[in-house]
């Protein structure tokens, strides 16, 4: 079952031109301003199934936030079709709010001076959760996210990691079917990041919550998501599984060899020597011109190998390459 359907989504913004020049021109522009159109989202289509965990990424200004605001019903699309949980967000925004949730890493939904428990109780009231049901969910979530000792602490006394755990509990409290996560681990240390990622993934798996994650941290994507959608300048440039992304979009690999021979000479098509020292050679293979198998076979023919390692680029490098449109279409 599809939880999110986006077909040929387009969003234009009309922005007033800022007037420069004489006082008269400025007044004229103020009275009758000239506008120009900015294409924020340019004909994108994708669908998300129930329980899918999808990274929705792109460079700054790519149109991610605009798309998410359209999906939540806060903005109206210029053209195209959007459906979230079988409802049109711009028409059924209020009904949809009961079924969606959001975590914004750089914002807080907790009341700063009051204990966490009070905000959670307020959210229970806002989402009309029956008292018994609320107590049950609160018990489950607080135990799972290990925030029981934090419940009576004022939010201002919490560390960022503790606060984020509470924020996520607050977002899961009404059992949303779709959760939008915007930089949920921003500013956290490595341990806190790992905990948050694991908890989000576990909760999504257990509840069948569809996740749409926006993050510049590729570890968030790798640890939480199974699928990646990349947009740039409003256009969808990639929609694929994380595994496919790692295997299909790698243009370069690095091979390091340790040989019995002290001196290694190497000059083959599609390879670049990165480091050379006695018994050791590190080369980069351009996979569009040569293959790893061929290069290794040639090594084995010429030298006696003691050790061999093959490294692929990190997800970050792959995504950076995609952002630069440096990939063969």
């Amino acid at each position: 079952m599809n939880t999110i359907v986006v077909q040929n989504l387009v969003k234009h913004f009309s922005t007033a031109l800022k007037a420069n020049g004489s006082f008269y021109q400025r007044i004229k522009n103020y009275i009758s301003p000239r506008h120009y159109t900015v294409v924020a989202v340019d004909n994108i289509s994708f669908t998300l199934k129930a329980g899918e965990r999808v990274a929705f990424i792109g460079p700054n200004g790519a149109g991610k936030s605009t798309t998410i605001k359209i999906l939540t019903g806060i903005m109206q699309p210029t053209a195209g079709y959007v459906e979230v949980l079988n409802q049109k967000p711009n028409i059924h925004r209020k009904q949809l709010t009961y079924q969606i949730g959001a975590v914004f890493g750089q914002r807080s939904q907790l009341w700063y001076h009051l204990p966490v428990q009070e905000t959670l109780a307020l959210l229970g009231a806002i989402y009309d959760i029956p008292s018994v049901e609320y107590q049950k969910r609160l018990g489950d979530l607080t135990e799972k996210f290990n925030i029981v000792p934090l419940l009576n602490k004022p939010v201002r006394q919490l560390s960022l990691g503790e606060r984020m755990r509470c924020e996520i509990v607050a977002s899961f409290l009404h059992k949303p079917s779709v959760l939008f996560l915007d930089e949920p681990t921003i500013g956290l240390d490595i341990t806190a990041k790992t905990i948050i990622r694991d908890l989000i993934k576990e909760q999504s798996e257990q509840q069948g919550t569809t996740l749409l994650l926006t993050s510049h941290d590729t570890d968030d994507i790798e640890k939480v998501c199974d699928r990646v959608i990349i947009i740039d300048k409003g256009k969808l440039i990639l929609d694929d599984s994380l595994n496919n992304l790692k295997t299909n979009y790698i243009r370069k690999k690095v091979v390091s060899v340790v040989t019995e021979e002290e001196f290694i000479t190497w000059d083959r098509v599609g390879t670049t020597v990165l480091m050379r020292s006695p018994h050791h050679l590190k080369i980069e293979i351009d996979l569009t011109k040569n293959t790893t198998e061929k290069v290794i076979a040639e090594f084995l023919e010429t030298y006696t190998l003691k050790d061999l390692t093959i490294e692929g680029p990190s997800l970050e490098t792959i995504i950076q390459t995609l952002y630069r449109h440096d990939i063969t279409q």
């Binding site: 939540t72 709010t97 969606i100 914004f104 914002r107 989402y127 009309d128």
Partner: peptide, 13 residues
Amino acid sequence: QSGQIVYFMLRPM
């Protein structure tokens, strides 16, 4: 100004 309004608009209130 801060965009926090979006957070509140995602709630049933």
